[in-house]
Design a protein around this nucleic acid. Structure first.
Length: 841
RNA sequence: GCGGGCGUGAUGGAAUGGUAGACAUAAGAGACUUAAAAUCUCUGGGCCCUAGGCCGUGUGGGUUCGAGUCCCACCGCCCGCACCA
């Protein structure tokens, strides 16, 4: 009997697939296409076990769909721009490009060992000049279409690294790298006008039937649509030019409960008042806490009474004080509000602190009502509100808006939380923004024929800041408009731009325009997109925006505004943690290969010290609970790793990597090989009908698991089917061949080997997926449980065609039922054909 | 605080409102072996008066002939957002 040697077999079949170009996708109008895409990786240089799970799932789908007759497109590339390359360049005195391409080469080798059904002929890295040059063309078209623009914006500025930081790179108010206190700085930045599509991006979520509800909900919350009223108060005692104060509210129904007006510390009116040193001190304080994380700790509501008053829009005899308040955001609505303490918790906290009136204007039942320390935000009936008295909230909102509009003081308005996407980054390793700053013409877009604007190679990171800023020969250029001396834009694009359209570029990765319409038209949309839920908002929202922008600029067909037909978020791979304590009682973490089992639990291999086993959590370097997939593949082969990452948990949930589980997977695959090997030499002629039925049952169940992203259930069925084959005394060849084809999407190498050994025709990867014969799924007899008063007491075996009456008769004549009836008659008898019998006594 | 999800054996997990615990791991027993490894077989929620019965899917109610599944309340855990007017 031969032993299965993955180290020989796996490279052999990988070479065969490559030789025969099995995974190369060609347009073919006669077959339905299927585009499978996994979120492409950042080329860190090291394959992570999470990649194995992600890409195995995509590969399963690709191979399964291909076996089902689809023309499958399954490309791969590299999300290759970004900070880590610059950090590595600084640390190792190398070039970011050199570092990145070395990593890509290294990672590609590791990918190859997994045996993925990828069409590498469409491969690109986003740092390839061919890619980012087309991205620049896209940018120019978007500029033309009014989707890109420049404006002043306040950003997180790291004064040591001299760069802008994204919000998530600011930790406790300090730069994640330099540790320097981050400043708010006003800079002129490039933006994409994603807000133009806010409503569309929200509405279209409903049409994404095969997206997780969770992701759709997160996007909807992020877009944050609210309907309300924007109107202006007349002011009393305000500086020149501020005779009106614009506010926004979603609760115009509560206007008669207003007891103050509030403005943000960044509001122009607040700034105008800063000549008063007290105001300046207060606004400075607000801005400081506004940027730091401590502000989130239930920051106390603080206000500063400006002495200015505003006049109530419905009753000019009412005057309200205007406060500068620390809880009002400048970039939402108008940066100014009216406060209605009775029906808003923040306003109530504020009012109690500063002794302002609290008048309830909505009551649960329309009766008199008052509020103490908890704002009333439930539905109710308007009181104390003049013309709105007696109305419900919705009617009152409509009435208030109508009245304001009639008086020409404002109008109903919809506001979004979603803001335009700032894409400028003061960094080298990104896509240069293709514009020129000309002293006479201003900001001038580069001409398309001058693209690509390539990053210069001769740069260094000796000094902080962007090397492009201090590279005169690159920076100095001529104006595309007047031909005079001009300076290049030195900002590069946010790396999220790169990943917002790569799925479209894959369809025609060598085109000399961003896409080729014929290819895009054939391959788009992505039929199944697979990746981590951490990209639920930004990457997916940006991609949805980009698809719209590409439709508008003529780079995608109109039907592609939603580029991903189906989305699946896979769970993470977790592992137990192992720790001991050091002299100071602090945890010291140990890698899985540093420990060994002892009598009860684990000890350190080196010292024999007892190890505390912690819960299974996301693999991380700091906790050292990391499993290296390359080592796993060296030990057991890729098929074992592929089988195991899918076997234990549903794909959307986290899976725990255990040594025993990986070994069990390996043992099972060995067993499959032994069976195939044995059966290949077997000469049995008698059909085992039980096995044939088990085969069709397995085909049906495994297929359902693949279709429904329940891969763990498919694997359970494969285990059952294996047991059925092992047990059978009849001809097992057909069953084992089906087994090979059923396993092919998960363990493609072993499947090929078994297929070949069993005399299968051609390659398993090219064989059609087995189809279950419905006739073979029907059992002649079924076992029906008998319940007495809803509790299972017995079971009977009946023919599948047994009529209801026959079943009833059989049930009533069963010993257990006779005993329970004790001579009496059942009150009720429920027979669900093929399911259950319930005797109610 | 708001929004969402989830609570099932020692563990990961199965279960169109219809036999709870498929499949796998850990554990235990046995077969083969001089022995080990490998392989194979069996046991595997708890309890009791053990030919049988009682209890059991976070807790308490409800709907139903029948609830892990549906409804209400509570408890616990996880994730997302975070002063969004």
């Amino acid at each position: 009997m031969s032993r299965y040697n993955a180290h020989v077999t796996e490279p052999k079949w990988q070479a065969k697939w490559q030789e025969l170009q099995v995974f190369k996708a060609e347009r073919d109008e006669n077959r339905p296409k299927y585009y499978v895409l996994e979120m492409f990786p950042y080329p860190s240089g090291k394959l992570h076990i999470g990649h194995v799970r992600n890409y195995t799932m995509g590969d399963l789908v690709a191979r399964y769909k291909s076996a089902k007759g689809f023309n499958v497109f399954h490309p791969m590339g590299w999300d290759a721009f970004g900070m880590p390359a610059e950090n590595a360049a600084m640390a190792n005195n190398t070039h970011p490009g050199k570092w990145t391409y070395q990593n890509i080469a290294e990672m590609k080798k590791q990918f190859a060992a997994l045996g993925l059904s990828l069409d590498w002929s469409h491969e690109f890295a986003t740092c390839d000049v061919e890619y980012y040059g087309q991205q620049q063309a896209l940018f120019l078209d978007m500029l033309d279409a009014g989707l890109a623009y420049r404006k002043n914006a306040s950003v997180n500025w790291d004064p040591v690294d001299m760069t802008v930081l994204a919000n998530e790179q600011v930790i406790d108010g300090r730069g994640w790298r330099s540790g320097a206190e981050v400043e708010r700085k006003e800079l002129t930045q490039w933006f994409f006008k994603i807000s133009d599509y806010a409503d569309d991006l929200l509405e279209a979520l409903d049409g994404l039937e095969n997206w997780p509800d969770k992701v759709k909900l997160m996007q909807a919350n992020w877009i944050g649509k609210s309907k309300g009223l924007q109107f202006s108060f007349k002011t009393i005692g305000a500086p020149e030019g501020f005779d009106k104060l614009e506010v926004y509210t979603t609760r115009p129904d509560t206007l008669f409960g207003a007891s103050f007006a509030g403005i943000s510390a960044d509001h122009p009116l607040a700034k105008a008042l800063e000549s008063n040193p007290e105001v300046a001190a207060f606004t400075a304080e607000c801005r400081r806490t506004g940027t730091s994380a401590e502000a989130l700790e239930k920051a106390e509501k603080l206000g500063f009474d400006t002495g200015i008053k505003v006049v109530h829009p419905f009753d000019s005899s009412i005057e309200l004080p205007v406060y500068i308040a620390n809880f009002i955001l400048m970039d939402y609505g108008t940066g100014a509000i009216f406060g209605c303490p009775a029906h808003d918790q923040r306003d109530l906290d504020f009012a109690r602190k500063y002794g302002l009136d609290v008048t309830a204007v909505v009551s649960p039942d329309g009766e008199d009502f008052s509020v103490e320390h908890e704002a009333f935000t439930d539905p109710g009936i308007l009181i104390n509100s003049d013309f709105m008295n007696g109305m419900d909230i919705e009617a009152a909102k409509t009435a208030a808006i109508k009245r304001i509009e009639a008086a020409d003081m404002g109008q109903g308005k919809t506001v979004f939380r979603l803001r335009d996407w700032g894409i400028s980054r003061q960094r080298y390793w990104g896509c240069p923004i293709p514009v020129v700053h000309c002293p006479s013409c201003g900001v001038v877009p580069e001409k398309k024929e001058n693209l690509p604007i390539e990053l210069p190679e001769d740069i260094n990171f000796d000094k902080p800041g962007n090397p492009l800023d201090r590279h005169p020969s690159w920076r100095n250029t001529t104006c595309p408009s007047c031909g005079g001396n001009a300076l290049r834009e030195t900002d590069t694009m946010d790396t999220f731009v790169d990943s917002s359209w790569y799925y479209a570029r894959f369809t025609s990765s060598n085109a000399d325009t961003p896409t080729n319409m014929a290819d895009a038209d054939y391959w788009m949309n992505v039929d199944q997109y697979i990746g981590g839920v951490e990209h639920a908002i930004l990457h997916l929202l940006y991609s949805r925006f980009f698809a719209r922008a590409m439709v508008k600029t003529g780079h995608l067909p109109a039907r592609c505004i939603e580029p991903f037909n189906a989305l699946f978020n896979q769970g993470m791979v977790c592992h137990e943690t192992y720790s001991t304590k050091d002299k100071n009682g602090r945890d010291v973490w140990h890698a899985p290969d540093e420990i060994t089992p002892d009598d009860e639990g684990y000890k350190l291999v080196k010292t024999g010290e007892k190890v505390t086993v912690g819960p299974s959590i996301k693999m991380s370097k700091s906790k050292r609970n990391v499993i290296d997939p390359v080592e796993q593949i060296e030990q057991f082969g890729a098929d074992t790793a592929r089988w195991f990452v899918l076997s234990d948990s549903p794909p959307e949930r986290d899976v725990e990597w255990t040594t025993s589980g990986a070994e069990a997977a390996w043992k099972h695959l060995q067993r499959i090989w032994r069976l195939a090997d044995e059966i290949a030499d077997e000469h049995r002629n008698d059909e085992d009908i039980t096995l044939t039925k088990a085969m069709h049952r397995a085909i049906k169940d495994v297929t359902e698991g693949y279709e429904g992203f329940a891969f763990n259930k498919s694997i359970a069925k494969l285990y059952e089917f294996t047991a059925a084959i092992a047990k059978s005394k009849g001809d097992r060849r057909a069953a084992m061949r089906s087994m090979a084809l059923l396993m092919q999407p998960i363990t493609p190498h072993l499947a090929e080997e078994c297929w070949q050994r069993l005399g299968g025709e051609g390659l398993a990867v090219n064989a059609p997926f087995p189809e279950a014969d419905p006739a073979m799924l029907v059992e002649d007899t079924v076992t029906l449980p008998i319940q007495i008063n809803g509790k299972r007491r017995a079971e009977i075996s009946v023919s599948k065609d047994a009529g209801k009456e026959e079943v009833e008769k059989l049930a009533l004549s069963h010993d257990a039922v006779i005993r329970a009836l004790n001579g009496g008659h059942p009150k009720k008898l429920i027979v669900v054909p093929g399911r259950i019998i319930n005797v109610v006594i």
